[in-house]
Design a protein around this nucleic acid. Sequence first.
RNA 1: GCCGGCGUGGCGGAACUGGCAGACGCGAUGGACUCAAAAUCCAUUGGGGCUCACACCUCGUGCAGGUUCGAUUCCUGUCGCCGGCACCA
Length: 938
Amino acid sequence: MAADEFTQRYDAALAGRIEERWQASWMERDLFRVPNPGDPGFDASKPKFYVLDMFPYPSGAGLHVGHPEGYTATDIVARYKSAKGFNVLHPMGWDAFGLPAEQYAVQTGVHPAVTTKSAIDAFRRQLQRLGFRYDWSREFGTIDPEYVRWTQWIWLRAYGSYYDERSGRARPIAELEAEWDAQNPSVEVPSSPGGAAHSSHQWSACAPWQRQAALDMRRLAYLGRQTVNWCPKLGTVLANEEVIDGLSERGGHPVLRLPLRQWMFRITAYAQRLLDDLALVEWPDSTKTMQAEWIGRSEGAEIHFDLEGFGPLTVFTTRPDTLFGATYMVVAPEHPIVAAIAARESTGAVATYAAWARNRSDIDRQAARGEKTGVALGIFAVNPVNGERIPVWTADYVLMGYGTGAIMAVPAHDERDFEFAQQFSLPIRQVVAAPDGSAWSGDRAMSGDGIACNSSHRECSLDGLVQAEAAARIVAWLEDKGLGRRLVNFKLRDWLFSRQRYWGEPFPVVFDETGMHHPVTEAALPVTLPELVDYAPVESDRPVPPLGKAHEWVNTTAGEAGVDSRLLPPGAKVRRETNTMPGWAGSCWYYLRYCDPQNPSRFASREAESYWMGDRGVDLYIGGSEHAVLHLLYARFWHKLLFDLGEVGTKEPFAKLFHQGMITSFAFERADGSLVPSTDAVEEAGTWREQATGATLTRVIAKMSKSLKNVVTPEEVIAEYGADTLRLYEMAMGPLAESKPWNTRDITGVFRFLQRVWRLALDERTGELLLARVADPDVERHLTRAIHKVGHDIERLAFNTAISALIEAVNAATRPTQMKDSAAGGFTRDQLGRFLRALAPFAPHIAEELWSRLGETQSISLAAWPEVDLSLLEDESVEMPVQIQGKVRTRVRVPALATPAEVERIVLADPKVLEQLGGREPKKVIVVPKRMVNLIAE
RNA sequence: GCCGGCGUGGCGGAACUGGCAGACGCGAUGGACUCAAAAUCCAUUGGGGCUCACACCUCGUGCAGGUUCGAUUCCUGUCGCCGGCACCA
């Protein structure tokens, strides 16, 4: 039999032809374009479904097989929901500002826009080859000027707002300014421009720069001071993990920790709402927990101690009940009091320690955790509750960024304080007794709950109270005396939003000659990046962002920059902000732009936004768990800000979130632990050997990486099997949420399944349809069950078991090779049509092809989901396992609708059961309808 | 250290709310078809035992206990792997 007889065999070449043809056809017919309310063709009677992928950063390396995993999952859901009668919004776009393109530009001088564009084109081509039903008419990149316009606009809205604690929401800062104009309050302002020291002034008596500073202290986007890791040699700010022992990880250059004026977001104002509203969303518990821990709410009290010679020193503590046990205090090395002491001491010990501690990176501090360092400041504080004088120390285990940067140390009941006290021989006083009354051993801190002891004086006694009661009583006493108050603290810090980079959104703000900042008007947006010849960082002791090199762009006039003439005369000289926004900016709101991506007058029309976002936001959002905290928290923050300002209608952006697992790959290790490229490993009789040497290898599971030579690309797989097989394999591998290893060998399973589907429908030699004339009841039952299960499984994102069900249906219908009579076995026309509609979300091309060969003229992606006759799901009788003494001994067939009593009667009459019972009387009979019977005998 | 998740055949995995462990796929073995091979189709495939018999017995979901008529599922302890956080007062 000649091979070319099988001209209609479903092989990689045919799959490829089918796929590319349908992809072109879908595109040509604009099949996946979804109209907005008001557009022609919009059907308002349908419910909406918004299913979103975390959009990719298009790198030059292109896609690997991990990328399409989540995209395939959302595509299946999108196709299914569409078939179920929803208006489905399923868009794709590009997170396109970022460091790799900038670094490439530094090396080659090629503008990042050029490399980014080609990377986007490659990504789009690769994604389109997988047949996703994205509405490509909604595509955009975060670098598009029209998108940047609205990113800058949102930033301006934050800049122009403050958080009103009384109403618990953001409001225009102009309202606060008007209020201050009317009431002329006393405000805290710096004594000199940019200075750190503050003093109180009447609002009306403030100079303009002081007014601006006072308002900056309330703005949601504000200019703040943040200590950064500046590397003069590299000319860049480094993340903590890029600094090792005070040197840059890259190059080993010295790194300075210095304070920098940077744009910040007052995300801390939203801490409580970001925490509370986690209850509104359907997200993985692990992700909610991570966000909650990141926000880090803790309840406690602030307590004012009197520092002899310096006035009050306020601390935050979660254990006010242990106040009587405070035997010393500690302030962070960066605390202002430390600098004051250092300035007047004679030995220099404090100054030396503070300088040493300041230049230790956060990472170094963490690495040396446990070994406590510190010096005594030589001054004393007075414990407000008992008037006791206790020494004040500075130590780097106290962090300036949390609470007030100062603590009261209670070594008996805090592990860190205990270690420190032991190291420096400071007194330790027990003020909490174990709940069971046992004595404290004193060899480690007792930090748990207990009964207060040694905690009383004339006015206030905590002795005998449990922690919560003791805390409440002491706080009440402190509040009464004006010595402290109840306080909730958060770990969450304000968000540093400036980057000393080129390839990011410019800030729409300029500085006048006095150093005051002024916003660019909305009409002048977007502020676009200037062209640069040289993108390299500037080597300097003082941070100079790359944009500083664009002198003409930076130094301009208020009119040129688009500043409102009521703020500055058009001819006034101004300097543009040279920092840019971080990569997060574009990803904070892209899901909103998809609702109405071409809108020239608003980020999205109110109508489109309220239709697609609905009551709860994006209906399904799928992406990696690596974004569990930052991206998702930042996006929620922007969304809440927009909600407060009346720009969006939902409290939360993403109703349901799901993280796909990572696709790993096998890697091969020699006995000495060195790695061998996967391509050089061969399997012989169950063991793996290196092809060249024959040495035994150990197979391990690892991330895909170039160095391990275990990267698999979609192209390779498509070339060998086609896109439908790739999609199907990725979904069949296992649960979407789990990480799972790519196993090239297993792909053949789903490929063979598609071949069987193909053969079931038509003759491989002639291409003629092969349809059963009458429906086999057994096949019908399998098919009905499969369709029912597939729908159910897609709803719960269990694609692997949905595919199993499809395979079972096909296996039930598959006719033996020899059976040439198409009347026996196989699907009828109607059955095949229903099967294809259930297959289409997973393998849309082959489903479309066979659908059209059935004579259908409309695309299968416009067809409705097949109805299921639920009565066929139930058999008339069911086989129930019978357990005797908890072990399955036999099975008995009973009518499906039999009552438990009837089942019991049938079972007890069964000869096999009687034999097993051996004459014993069942003491108890448990019948679980349709499940099983359990007989308990003596 | 703390928090979360996961441990099931040779391999990937299935088992809805505590009710027949191993669906489906890979691999393997045997068979049909073929001159032969590939492809395809059929059958078998957790370990052990027993048998003429796929009648049956027994062990088995990381390990050790517990709750229950019944546990992969719930509880306690423990080991291993993965992810996150990490001096946050």
